[in-house]
Each structure stands twice: as structure tokens, then as C-alpha cells.
Write a protein that binds this DNA or RNA. Structure first.
Lengths: 287, 287
DNA sequence: GCGTAGGCATAAATTCAAATTATCCTTTTT
DNA sequence: AAAAAGGATAATTTGAATTTATGCCTACGC
């Protein structure tokens, strides 16, 4: 037998076998792999056909390894572990540092609350990198970025984080102080629609009221929390504040906006699976 | 770090790396893998992007492993070897027995002459299984079969072996014995066009001449070789005889036929790569 | 005993990653 | 110089693998 070449047994099938064997369930293996139960079932079906043996006994509501499967598993695991460990050691890739670059507000209001779940799901060590607003799009080394825009991103992986919906909110303490329209208006510089748009769309009287301007959503939010006025807030971002009762909405109307934050992934640095895990965890309505 | 899961580094890329590293050339790796140079180049490009390092130094007309590549290679090989060996030991799959089922004539006239190359290319231990004509299509365990027909096969892998072209041939010794049309006609029972068709198509006089009938092409061929008459032979099958001068053609006309032998592969038992190697070796005009 | 839920298999349809094709570029050889 | 060898790259095509949508079976609850 010549020593050249390793025969072509699709290794993704082997991976599916390992996961199913270890977890004792196709469904569980599917979850771990970010695939569907159907995919696992088929992979293993193919594997068995190619190998010419049953690897699993399909019992009701559970599967068991056959003798063949039992015999094969340790070797498969050894190979997979060896590969994973050496790769990790040399390149620090496998389940290692994942840097997410985003604005301070997104970091604080969107990522931090989801950090725990994210770390758990991805198994990675997460680093949040605050984007420097002034520096534009300096090439950072983050594999994942969050940017505001309308979606024409030149990257392969891109998904809107949430649907931008704006509505006025105030600290509960201010509720008794007469009509909210008369309160000082807090606004945040940036790309989001302004009070001007709000008034135009909802026929709110444009009575001149005092304004306070902030350069970050977080700052404006802090002011609102402190009872300094009414903030035209991004509802998804302040959901936690609303839930906690630190802020309350004062109008039913909602101002929508076509621009929003996008989750952007560097395709060459992320596997399909990693991307799915990330977006599943971070995108509104997916998790 | 949880012990669950092996991160998703596409293992086919790793295989490409191993082959290229071992062979010292992308082109050579492509050949071994039955892929194109382009495919190998891309796989390794992706791998490097994902890993975040160069694995090879691209020099003119050759490649060299970088330090990273050098360090990684042994681990990769260990994993791949472990997997291959255990799989082979348990299931005897990898580069093992390959049974080809065909008629006696095809075995003798088509497969045997190509056996050596086939064994070398596929790295498999080949078994030729003579199909029993009488038994119809009994399910044999051969992963590869050769059958006569017009191509409507219910298998995924199917390719015509050659284009059927018939023409009269005789042993050289008979050439002096007057017009070949007056020689006894040898014919083979079976699906191929008969002398009748030949005469109709070429306006050969249908002068009644003596006939000898055989139940296999091989038998008829032997008779022709022995100078017992003129055989309406399948040219691709007797090419070797013609080349060796044991038979000669007596007419320029060629009778074509839409039916021919097909190479059929059981998709679930053959990898794409194996199939390509086989068909590349066995199909006329490919090798 | 039935009904329901959990888990795998299967068919059909879709998706998208990966392969091929076709050039281009660079370097070595004659 | 011209040709050959080997690799990179862009564009296109292909087809394998995934998903979606069911179906089926069995254990378990009531």
C-alpha cells in the first residue's frame, strides 16, 4: 500500500458522528453544530452507507452506539482532539478570542446585557472594543463589527441588529409635572431622526422648548434617567430601562427609521457556524 | 473551556494542506486529490485566512512550508493517519477492495488490459466479478458494474465506456483467400447490430454465406483469430488485436450503435473522487 | 386506552459553498 | 526571446448539503 493520500471520507460526516455519539442524540448534535436534526440524520446515514455498517441503533426516543460505533468513536475523538488542540495551540483560533467592535452606546446597551449568553453559546473569550467615532472606519482587527447604516455593506456576513423605533421616554419622576411636551427635550447628535422629524410626523406642537444636546446616546440616556427631560429614545436600546421602570414611554406613536445598526462579520475569519451563533445571540428576535 | 464540540475548521481544507505540504506542490496535491490546481490554491488560501497565518511561502515554481506550517504538519498528519488507519481497520473501507462486475468479454477485453493502471491510480485491491448472463440483474455487492444499454440507468454515477463502432475484421491469414464478403460470417448473439444491419447499411451483397454463431463476443473473437471467418467486431474492444496485427479490418465503413457499455457506480458507496479516478481510467478518451 | 410529545427518517426544494474554466503573472529553462 | 512550469485570481457553474415540511413510531401521561 502506498503511503500517499488519505482516502476521501467526508470529514464533516465524521464530525457529525462524533457529536451524536458523545451527546447521545441527533437532535442535540444538531444544536451543538448549529444545524438541523435532519442534517445530522443524513450525514450519519451517508456515513453508514459508505462504511457499510450501522453506527447507531435507533431505538425509540434515543440512539445507542453499535459495537462498530463504539469501537470507532475513541479513534475519531483522538483524531479530532489532536487536530483541535494543535490548531489551538499554534494559531489560537479554535474557540478563542473574539473581538467585537462597536460604539460605546451599543457596547453598553446591547452587547453587555447579552455578553453572558454570548460567551456561553460561542465558547469564545469575548473582547468588546469601543469604536472611536472620530477615526472613521480605521481597519480594526475585530472579526465582528457593529455599525450604523442602511445596509449596503461590502461584507459577506451582514444582518440588521434590530428595527429602529424611536419614541419619547422620561423618568417616572417627571410624569406628574404636566404635559411631557413642555419638558426640556434631550437629543443626541448623530444619524438618528431628530425631534424635528418627530414633531413633523406626529403633529406634536413645535412649541419652542429648551433643548439639551448630547454626543452619545448613553449620555442622553443618563440625562433622561436623571429626570432632566424627555428623550427621543431608540426603543430596542432602552427596553431594559423601560422594563426596570427607570424610564417610561409618554406616547404611543413610534417613529421608524430605515437605518439601524448592522452586525457585520468578516467572512474569511468566521465560519458559517460561528456567524450563526453570533447572530442568533445578538440579533433581535432570533435568540 | 468546555469539552464539548470541536470547532469548525473545514477539514477538507486541512486535507489539502496536508497533501500540498507532503508533495511540495499545489499541482501535485491537486492530482492526488483529483481536483484542479485552482481548487487547492483556494482551499489553502481560505485556510490561511482563517488561521491568520501564512502556511506556505510561495516561491517561484515551488512552495515551502513556513515555520507555522512546519509546526502544524505533523499534528495534522497524525490526526489524518489515525483516522484513516482506524477506519480501515474497522471497516476495511479506505483504499480497499473494489469489486467490478462485468460480462466475461468486457472483463477480458476491456478491464484486464487496464487493470494495472487502475490498481495504481485507485490504490485499491481490485476484484473482477464475472456477471452471470442468465441471472439478469441479481443484486451483486459490487460498487461498480458495467452493463450494456442505452443509458437510462437508475444510478447516480453512470458514464458510457466507449462509443460502439462495429466493422468486419478477419485474421490476416485469410486476406489472400478472395473477397472477404465470401468468407464465413461469424456473429455473436446479443444486443449488438447483426450482419443483417451491416448489409443493409453498406449495401454489401447479402449473398448467402455460411454463418457461425457464438454466445459471447470472446468466443467469436477467438474464432476470428483462428481464421474461421469474418467477424463483425466492436472496434474499441478489438483495438488491441488490431494493434497487434492478429486481426485486420477489411472495410472502411463503420456501423455505429446508440447502445453501448456503461460504467455504473453505486453512489452511496463511492466518493466523488473515487468515481473520477475510476472513470478517468476506464472510459475511452478520458485517460 | 388513548392522546400527546419527543425523536428520527425521508422527500422535495433551496441554498450557497466549492469546483471548474479561463486568464494572468512570475520565474526558470533552452 | 520564447516557452514551460507553477501559482493566483475572477467569473461562472455545479451539485452537494441544508432546510423545510412531513411522516412514523414509541414511550409516557392521564
Amino acid at each position: 500500500m502506498d503511503k500517499t493520500g488519505f482516502d476521501h471520507l467526508p470529514l464533516e460526516w465524521v464530525r457529525a458522528f462524533e457529536a451524536a455519539a458523545r451527546l447521545g442524540s441527533f437532535t442535540a448534535a444538531a444544536q451543538e453544530t448549529s444545524l438541523t436534526q435532519s442534517a445530522i440524520s443524513q450525514r450519519i446515514g451517508h456515513l453508514e452507507a459508505r462504511l457499510g455498517t450501522q453506527l447507531f441503533v435507533r431505538q425509540a426516543r434515543r440512539i445507542t452506539l453499535t459495537a462498530d460505533g463504539e469501537a470507532w468513536l475513541p479513534h475519531v475523538q483522538a483524531a479530532l482532539v489532536g487536530l483541535r488542540d494543535s490548531t489551538e495551540a499554534l494559531f489560537g483560533v479554535s474557540r478563542n478570542r473574539l473581538t467585537i467592535s462597536a460604539s460605546g452606546s451599543i457596547n453598553e446597551l446591547w452587547l453587555v446585557p447579552r455578553l453572558e449568553q454570548l460567551a456561553e453559546v460561542s465558547g469564545a473569550q469575548i473582547t468588546l472594543s469601543t469604536m472611536v467615532v472620530a477615526s472613521g472606519d480605521t481597519k480594526d482587527d475585530a472579526a465582528v463589527r457593529i455599525r450604523y447604516g442602511s445596509g449596503d455593506w461590502p461584507v459577506a456576513y451582514a444582518v440588521p441588529l434590530y428595527e429602529e423605533r424611536l419614541s419619547p421616554v422620561v423618568a417616572p419622576a417627571l410624569l406628574g409635572r404636566g404635559a411631557w411636551q413642555t419638558l426640556p427635550r434631550l437629543s443626541v447628535s448623530g444619524p438618528r431622526p431628530s425631534w424635528r422629524r418627530w414633531c413633523a410626523q406626529t403633529d406634536t406642537s413645535t412649541t419652542p422648548v429648551s433643548h439639551l444636546r448630547f454626543d452619545s446616546f448613553c449620555a442622553g440616556l443618563a440625562a433622561a434617567r436623571a429626570g432632566q427631560g424627555v428623550l427621543l429614545a431608540s426603543l430596542p436600546l432602552v427596553q431594559a430601562e423601560l422594563d426596570a421602570g427607570r424610564l417610561v414611554r409618554v406616547a404611543d406613536e413610534v417613529l421608524r427609521h430605515h437605518e439601524t445598526y448592522w452586525l457585520l462579520g468578516a467572512k474569511e475569519r468566521l465560519s458559517r457556524r460561528q456567524w450563526r451563533q453570533l447572530s442568533g445571540c445578538l440579533v433581535d428576535g432570533t435568540a
